[in-house]
Amino acid sequence: MTIPVEYQRATDHFHQFLSDVRDEASLDTVNQAYTMTQGVLQAFRRRLEIGEAIRFSNVLPADIRALFVADWDLEEPKRQFEDRAAMTKEVQSLRPLHNYAPESSIRDVAKALRHNVDESALNRVLETLPEGARQFWQA
C-alpha cells in the first residue's frame, strides 16, 4: 500500500494554508500566521467535548489536524461559545509578545481553512457540533 497523498504532501499543503492565512490577515510572515492559527484552533477546541473535537478534526488535512490537537490540556474546563470579540481576545492571548492576530483573526483563519478543506464535509460536521460552532467558522 502506498502512503496517502495527504501525508506525502503535508508540508507543502501546510505551507500553502499558512500562506493563505497570512494573506487573509495581511500579516508579514507565515510564522505570524502559525501563531494566529494555533490560537484560533485552540479557542475553538476549548468549546468542544473530545468526541466533537475528533469529528471536527477528521475533516481537517493531516497538518492542520496535528496543530488542532497539539498541546491539548485535557484538564482545561470546557468553555461556551461567546461573541467573536471575546474569543478573538482569547486568540490574541496566546504568546502575546509574538502574536500579531488582528481583530479579524477568526474570520481570516476560517476563510483560509475553507479554501483548504472539503467545505461540504466541514459544513456537515459543524452541523453536529454545539451551537456557535458554525458561526465560529463563518468566513
Rank of each mutant, 00 (worst) to 15 (best):
D12G: 10
G39C: 14
Q138T: 11
R134W: 04
A112R: 02
P4V: 02
S120G: 08
M36R: 01
Y100S: 13
T35G: 10
A33R: 03
L113T: 02
S104Q: 06
E103H: 06
H98G: 15
S57D: 07
T11C: 11
A70Y: 07
V125T: 08
V5C: 15
S19N: 09
E131S: 14
H13T: 12
D23V: 05
Y34C: 13
A101C: 15
T88P: 00
Q80H: 10
L18S: 01
A86N: 03
L97H: 10
K78T: 12
E76W: 06
A43E: 03
K89F: 10
M87T: 02
W72V: 14
M87D: 07
L41F: 12
A53L: 11
Q138C: 08
V5K: 15
E24D: 05
R65C: 15
S105Q: 01
E82S: 14
D83Y: 05
H15I: 14
R107K: 11
I3T: 11
F14C: 10
T35Y: 10
D108R: 03
V30P: 02
I50C: 07
R134D: 11
Y100K: 09
L67A: 13
Q42H: 09
V5S: 13
A10V: 08
V109G: 04
L122H: 01
A43Y: 03
N116Q: 03
G132H: 03
A86C: 08
N58H: 07
I3Y: 07
A112Y: 01
A43K: 00
S120P: 00
E52Y: 01
R22Y: 02
G39R: 03
S93Y: 06
E127C: 09
A133G: 05
T2A: 15
S26R: 08
H15P: 01
F14Y: 10
P102A: 12
E49S: 13
V109W: 00
D71R: 13
P102G: 12
G39P: 00
P130F: 12
V91M: 04
F68T: 08
A10W: 05
N123Y: 04
V109N: 02
A112M: 07
N31D: 14
L129I: 00
P61F: 14
A66C: 08
Q138P: 00
Y100Q: 08
R46D: 10
A62I: 08
K111D: 01
E119T: 07
D71E: 06
S26T: 09
K89H: 11
D83A: 14
E119L: 10
S105I: 01
N31H: 14
R79M: 15
D73S: 08
E90T: 09
K111V: 04
H13E: 10
Q138A: 14
S104W: 02
L67M: 15
F81T: 04
H115N: 14
V59S: 04
D23W: 02
A110V: 05
